[in-house]
Amino acid sequence: MTDYFQNSEVVSLPDIIKVEFTKIDKNYFKVILINFFLIFNFLFVGLILLDKFTFTEEITAYSIYIYASFTSFFGFIFLFLYFSFSKRMYVLRDKDISYKAGLFTKTITTVPFSRIQHVEIDEKPFSRIFNLASISVYTAGDSSDDLEIKGINKEKALQIKEFISTKIDE
């Protein structure tokens, strides 16, 4: 036997910071927009009804301010959604899956394939219009903090699921 057993020291580990992340599907922003405007309109109608029927004289004097603060509040939420959207990114490596998100609070989560219990693909009604799906992976223990990537092209999501499934079985 001329071959020696080789187990050289690992000098540098793969670095999560240097990995290139993929952005989620642009169409998902439309889904976010639809959801946003549904809630906005619903509350706005509610506010108008309140204004018309239950507000007393004293409050009606300030109604312009109420409307202004209401709209600016939602305006800020809209800006937040817009800017945080481009921060949602994911990456699949050979042995794990990672998701990065957050505008003010940045988070990176990584789940190794060897710890995944099962993978799930969800299609919400609005997402289906744009052929989008969300993929969730579950590990043992407290499942609320596992990884969910919303807004991936459906075919791609199925591919990822297949990929992970084969990796789990290894």
């Binding site: 609070t105 940045k106 988070t107 990176i108 989560t109 789940v111 710890r115 590990t139 043992a140």
Partner: peptide
């Protein structure tokens, strides 16, 4: 024995 790992940084922390 870790199941998954997360790193979190607020803008103040940054």
């Amino acid at each position: 024995k870790v199941q998954n790992i997360k790193i979190q940084q607020t803008i103040f922390q940054k």
